[in-house]
Design a protein around this nucleic acid. Sequence first.
DNA 1: AATGAATGAGTATTCATTCAT
DNA 2: AATGAATGAATACTCATTCAT
Lengths: 222, 222, 222, 222
Amino acid sequence: MLSHPSPATTPAPRRERRKQARPGELIDAALELFVSKGFAATRVEAVAQKAGVSKGTLFLYFATKEELFKAVVRHAIVGRFAEWNAEFDSFPGSTADMVRYAMRSWWDQVGNTRASGISKLIMSEASNFPEIATFYDQEVIRPGNALIGRIIQRGIDRGEFRCVDVHYAVYSVLSAMMFLAMWKHSFGPCMPAAEKLDPDAYLHHVADVIIRGLQRTEGASA
Amino acid sequence: MLSHPSPATTPAPRRERRKQARPGELIDAALELFVSKGFAATRVEAVAQKAGVSKGTLFLYFATKEELFKAVVRHAIVGRFAEWNAEFDSFPGSTADMVRYAMRSWWDQVGNTRASGISKLIMSEASNFPEIATFYDQEVIRPGNALIGRIIQRGIDRGEFRCVDVHYAVYSVLSAMMFLAMWKHSFGPCMPAAEKLDPDAYLHHVADVIIRGLQRTEGASA
Amino acid sequence: MLSHPSPATTPAPRRERRKQARPGELIDAALELFVSKGFAATRVEAVAQKAGVSKGTLFLYFATKEELFKAVVRHAIVGRFAEWNAEFDSFPGSTADMVRYAMRSWWDQVGNTRASGISKLIMSEASNFPEIATFYDQEVIRPGNALIGRIIQRGIDRGEFRCVDVHYAVYSVLSAMMFLAMWKHSFGPCMPAAEKLDPDAYLHHVADVIIRGLQRTEGASA
Amino acid sequence: MLSHPSPATTPAPRRERRKQARPGELIDAALELFVSKGFAATRVEAVAQKAGVSKGTLFLYFATKEELFKAVVRHAIVGRFAEWNAEFDSFPGSTADMVRYAMRSWWDQVGNTRASGISKLIMSEASNFPEIATFYDQEVIRPGNALIGRIIQRGIDRGEFRCVDVHYAVYSVLSAMMFLAMWKHSFGPCMPAAEKLDPDAYLHHVADVIIRGLQRTEGASA
DNA sequence: AATGAATGAGTATTCATTCAT
DNA sequence: AATGAATGAATACTCATTCAT
């Protein structure tokens, strides 16, 4: 705001970068930072820098830091559920295999992806952004729940699984996956190599327990 | 695991002349705020106010906001493990009952307490406070893991459980509890009443699946 | 004093392909915005938009916002004084009529024009742009003063007016006109219709008082 | 926001000032700067510095820059009208003297005071702060108008003044004072000494013209 | 011990200005 | 000539931290 005669202010010769600077790159950068540092502790400047653009450019695409946050969440919710539901309808094998397949699928396509950070992010920030939590619940949690529920119901219908309360049985599977996602983005990075939780082995063993726990048996009681 | 003199969970019944505003009250207030808003988004002034003291007083007891944070975490970790280990050594019933008892115990004494927020807090802030994450791992995760591990091992030793890989089987139990704690402090508060997850039913059903999944059976295959 | 090709005061009837978006349109747009919002609070983008061109184009014509400001002021000062001076030299009627005529002329050709905003603008920004204030003083104030001064002197010379101190008597006329210009661009727009100051009536009555105040009389004392 | 282990950040030992830092000092400083630079071009930091406090302190007393602005305006409107109205009711002399006295009074108590900057400020910012302009109109302009109107009416009632339209005659007086106030804060400071408008002489001569213009006479016509 | 006024480094956001197209 | 994406210096406002009382 040069409001005075201005004694020849050098206009500063800048440039350097020239690009499409797609909002996508900003969202990617933001996702990573939000996930690891949280919303409040992430500086927009850091996001811009990570995306290789200037602070100003970020605000060209997202009016506020909060808008950026919402965009990050929305972007990560590329509902894979339609696709998964279809796979489910035509799944040929046993329901036990199906549960295993579902968990692996989730891991390969979501859990082991940067997108899994969203789960942690949402859980961490839920009380700061209730509307987003609600949105996430409807767009992700509920459909995910429904999908798992249908799988378990199939097991029951086909006589493979016990007559469990589907509503709660779902959480056996869900909690296992969510825990892994959380872990990966919280303790994961700061554990010494020796302590690291191996996701594949984790999924294998935990799925095994869950499946046996759901299956029909002759023996076993409380 | 309610660790301070204040006997109730009610918002602190402030007596007239609150001489000696104990750091405990500050820690309680801080815990609640850190859990719901996160470290960065919590203002020390809000903590002080919630504790009924002035901002200046807070700094009398905790040199920095970060020290306050550490104190909150340390304070919540008054390892109940020794006690639990003792209970375990003399537990009379079946290992299945023991698992159920352990999960309920955890819920009654930790999960259903404000202290459970610590889990969420640590997970959320782990990457911002790696040393605390490490500390928490050593003081809480590892002992907890060990305890659960001993229980499962007992089941195996006594022929009640299958010969599972104890190291991973532990996570079946752990993930179920951690998930509940996270949920309670993230989505829990913003779900409509109808959608609310009932912790007791959750624990009951999930424990059931896990126990059956661990138990020896004659039938059941992949 | 409408100084650009655009013949009307209407918001510029933009033709299809506005090739050659003349600087004049930018100056018009800038004048309006500077007058109502002030220099600092006016965004160049708003000026460009109002002129129907892009921000970049504006800088094609004006190196800086400050240059634009100067151009606006300079442009509005196409001294009508030569013309008025000529009219004065050949004015046939009484000096009282002449004063009235001068005030009406000013109103019709300047005051009631968007150009009158310049007065307000300069007064508002004088301390931020002293050189422009000086410039304005020399190009507008002083000539205007001189012109009014000559009129009053004529009245004195012809025995129509008292022997007042011309230097100060001038301000009786000047202040009346400046006040009207300021009012129009400040309170004017935000007064309820009922309160609005009617410029014609204002000029009529105020001119009347001034003229009688300058005229020779037999009675009247302090 | 120290979110990392923090490698011993030097907490910066500052202090230096210790005072009552009354909001009044901030308002004074703000008045001066707003008047000379305008609202937008005034930096809050400059205001704080001029008041001898830190930026943070300013925001301790005024939530936003705009609140500060409003406080400045409100503060300057210490309605002197009650007092003036009283003086008017018991004024012993001629109405001509009264007009002279009123103008001098205004100059001594307002115009020649830092408070006069408010007039300029309001006029300059009226379209950016319409609500304040309205407020000012009601609290200052209207009462001022009424007061002058009563004086003129007195002149008419007592046969000293002609039967002018009081509503407009008021502006003869008002415009003269407002012009002086504006001038003082705009061109005043940037005129060479030789050119300076002498307020006393200005008021004297202009008042003279106005009074004669209002007074009853035997001669004089259009 | 306790307070709360004061501080100033830090951060989101704006906007004049540049430049490849 | 004209554009509009990109830039980054500038500025309002926040909040952890200090210190006289």
